[in-house]
Design a protein around this nucleic acid. Structure first.
Lengths: 109, 109
DNA sequence: AACATATGCAATAATTAGGTTGCACTTTCG
DNA sequence: CGAAAGTGCAACCTAATTATTGCATATGTT
């Protein structure tokens, strides 16, 4: 199964691997939408660090953004997350099948 | 929802985020079991690099190992992967609910 | 216009991740 | 026993990540 050449999911996994980014996702989901500046007041890191994290999240398409006047508002995108969950569940099922097959072979001897 | 303090899933996400580690998981799943030395012949990196990756995968409980004589054999563990997929799917669903709620509020004005 | 607020850009610094090499130790086999 | 095969440990290097600070630019407000 395609675990290796799934560079599409790689950005998502990298994005989710960082605790600060998960916290940001939580905050945005909780508020519906949020700006880098407001997020920076809650999180322990600087606004610029938040902006960098948001860029990574946006590249992974876990969030989208739209400009309203002078501010940039971010929202979460559940689609990418659910498709990654699906990919992961399929992978687990694939491993399971292979393990079952091996177990059966071992019992036949 | 608990996206932030899910350090349990963090190791798994970090483990899966690396392409070499995903390749190793693929190879182990394909063969049922494998040693660091045999894996190193397929992968482009050294045996020691493979060992380090396997350690990370084992910490994340994505693989288990057992010693047979002088060699250490690794197998994949689908459980952790499927539970992470579930966690991720729940998170996506949670985001979805919140977005729906916000949309409804917006339409009521 | 003047001031406050929000974002954008760039240089820099500290830490971590991924990888290498060399050598010692253990198990197997001729 | 002695050689081969597999693993374990440790030092070291490099590049990428995370975060910082300072300043410039754009937008809204009084």
């Amino acid at each position: 199964m395609v675990t290796t050449d799934s560079s599409h999911f790689e950005n998502i996994l990298i994005a989710l691997a960082d605790p600060t980014r998960r916290q940001l996702l939580d905050l945005i989901a909780l508020r519906g939408q949020a700006t880098a500046t407001t997020l920076a007041t809650t999180v322990t890191v600087s606004r610029q660090a938040v902006v960098k994290h948001l860029t990574i999240l946006k590249d992974a398409r876990l969030v989208s953004s739209n400009r309203v006047g002078r501010e940039v508002r971010y929202q979460v995108c559940p689609q990418q997350l659910s498709s990654t969950a699906e990919w992961m569940a399929n992978l687990a099922a694939d491993w399971d099948r292979k393990l079952e097959w091996i177990k059966r072979i071992a019992e036949e001897k």
